[in-house]
């Protein structure tokens, strides 16, 4: 069993979605958004919860989370700056300027996180607002033409929110973010494992509303004809040679 589960209110949102999708697996993208909202990022625990909710293995969820770069991971800072570095924004040095400003305020180079884990900065690909470069996203806030005073003021407001000053960060260098998945999550307690070693994933889903039929993936019935080659009459299959 996962260590935590979703809050009742988000679990309700999950149940509200059920009717919209033909199967549980297809709810994974939206479920990952729910767990991301719940935990602030997608960590190992969140991945297991999403896997349980959608009836897939945690390995599949890991594969999803590492494929889609927009999901926030535990390695990212609490405030995650994403600066568009694709050609249209990079023209005329717009991206460079935004990155330089972030570096001068927070001491962060792209791909780094502050040592206290509050801020991180990374370059991302096109954010689709190419007429107003540079485009910067901070978690789920979107800014266009984000350079000069606007960017400085915004960083200052975040620093104020966290009771920090930019002087605290200017002298310390950031740490590189490691977005790889650890081999075993630190909280992994082997609960729910069977003697054969693997965790059991069955269709008895604790998250579905009482009274509602669980959405199971039906197991195909056993084949009527066994998958063996037809044997001609009169051939001894026990190895005895005739004649």
């Amino acid at each position: 069993m996962p260590v935590k589960t979703l809050s009742p209110e988000r679990l309700k949102r999950f149940h509200d979605m059920v009717d919209d999708y033909p199967n549980k697996r297809s709810m994974l993208m939206m479920t990952l958004r729910l767990v991301e909202e719940e935990f602030g990022c997608i960590n190992d625990e969140a991945m297991e919860i999403a896997a349980d909710l959608c009836g897939v293995t945690p390995a599949h969820v890991q594969g999803m989370v590492t494929f889609y770069t927009h999901f926030k991971r535990s390695a990212h800072g609490k405030h995650r700056f994403m600066v568009c570095a694709t050609l249209m924004c990079a023209l005329d040095g717009n991206t460079d300027q935004a990155l330089k400003q972030i570096e001068s305020k927070l001491g962060l180079k792209p791909g780094q996180r502050t040592q206290d884990g509050l801020f991180s900065c990374e370059k991302v690909e096109c954010l689709a607002d190419c007429d107003k470069p540079p485009v910067v996203q901070k978690d789920f806030e979107h800014f266009c033409s984000m350079k000069g005073k606007a960017l400085d003021d915004y960083i200052e407001s975040l620093l104020k929110l966290e009771n920090k000053t930019s002087a605290e960060y200017q002298n310390s260098s950031g740490v590189e973010m490691d977005l790889r998945i650890s081999v075993l999550p630190s909280h992994y307690n082997f609960e729910g494992e069977t003697e054969s070693g693997a965790r059991q994933f069955d269709d008895k889903d604790p998250y579905f509303k009482p009274g509602e039929a669980p959405r199971t993936t039906s197991v195909p019935p056993p084949l009527l004809t066994p998958l063996t080659a037809p044997v001609a009459d009169g051939v001894n299959m026990n190895g005895a040679q005739h004649g």
Partner: peptide
């Protein structure tokens, strides 16, 4: 008619 809005996550 069911209309479902889904979100991707940063994959071109």
């Amino acid at each position: 008619l069911k209309v479902v809005v889904m979100r991707g996550a940063g994959a071109y």
